[in-house]
Design a protein around this nucleic acid. Sequence first.
DNA 1: TAGATCTGCGTCAATGCTGTTGCAGCTATG
DNA 2: CATAGCTGCAACAGCATTGACGCAGATCTA
Lengths: 177, 177
Amino acid sequence: MRAILEGAERVLSVDPGASMEQIAAAAGVARTTIHRRFASRQALIETLALDAARQLARAVDDGRPDTAPAQVALHRITVNVLEVKGAWAFALGLPAEPGSEAAALHEDLGRRCITVLERARADKLIDEAADLEWVRRVYYALLGESLHGSADDADVDTDTLAARIVDTLLHGAGPRS
Amino acid sequence: MRAILEGAERVLSVDPGASMEQIAAAAGVARTTIHRRFASRQALIETLALDAARQLARAVDDGRPDTAPAQVALHRITVNVLEVKGAWAFALGLPAEPGSEAAALHEDLGRRCITVLERARADKLIDEAADLEWVRRVYYALLGESLHGSADDADVDTDTLAARIVDTLLHGAGPRS
DNA sequence: TAGATCTGCGTCAATGCTGTTGCAGCTATG
DNA sequence: CATAGCTGCAACAGCATTGACGCAGATCTA
């Protein structure tokens, strides 16, 4: 079960159009076994998306977004999300079915992200006039970009990557004053 | 010919796995007509990618990356690229075949982007110590994010979007000093 | 007008994927 | 030991897609 989801993630993140046969091979089971557990390819993918969304939610919760100082929460959340999103890139990149539980989770995550950003703004880390929705989108984009990972990033630890993301989000590329 | 490429872009940007039948319908031609011009689905997609890469190259050239002041070039290039990338999102998102002409164009674009950033750094727009390769990736990510376009962005002109991208790239979300 | 070219249409064979089923073997639990 | 549950394997039908033709009609050109 878990093996199937992990195999599916591995294969589909490389080729989103991969066949059930390839997924089964990656999971180390027979194709029919997958069909016995998931009514259809679609059902498998939805389960995959939901499972990944739950892991992402846990990753954010672990960063104590409501209680830790904004600066700290931002960093910890970034580290956790980098790890989860790295392992479930395909599942999390899936367009969430409107009304699905996965979609609800992602919306909730979005709200929670905005909350952290508001706290960061209250701490003068973010400009008063900033459009937090845009800041959130930039943050997501930076996370995504870090995951593409140039060759150099391979042997850099997650903490360093996270620090770079947060720094870029807050200060951009301009000269430090 | 042009109609086929444009139809393919329209359809494939919505569903990358769309059939030749759907592409033909979008292009306003019969499926067999496409097969007469393109030896295979693969050939069509490669042509699409190459065509889009060429348009992107032209968009960058139009921004005078080597002669205009860095600030100006950055803005103009951003505007142009936003327009081209908005219209050819699928084709430009395609992983370029190693060694292909499209890949060469993209590599060249990358180098040209770095050059502009170096000029911006010389003008004190970018921090001395900044890793320009990372800055470039952030720039690409911001471009991509702007194209996803939240509902609000729909009725905002390209100039405003570009200004926001450049501003975020240089200053981030932090407070302005 | 005559010819060349391109198009749409219908049809065809080949291929690959999906989802289902029957059968046999393995394992754990009672 | 016996049984229930799960697995792999093989095979099957159904379906969609790809790529290839031949033919007939339209359009453009010499």
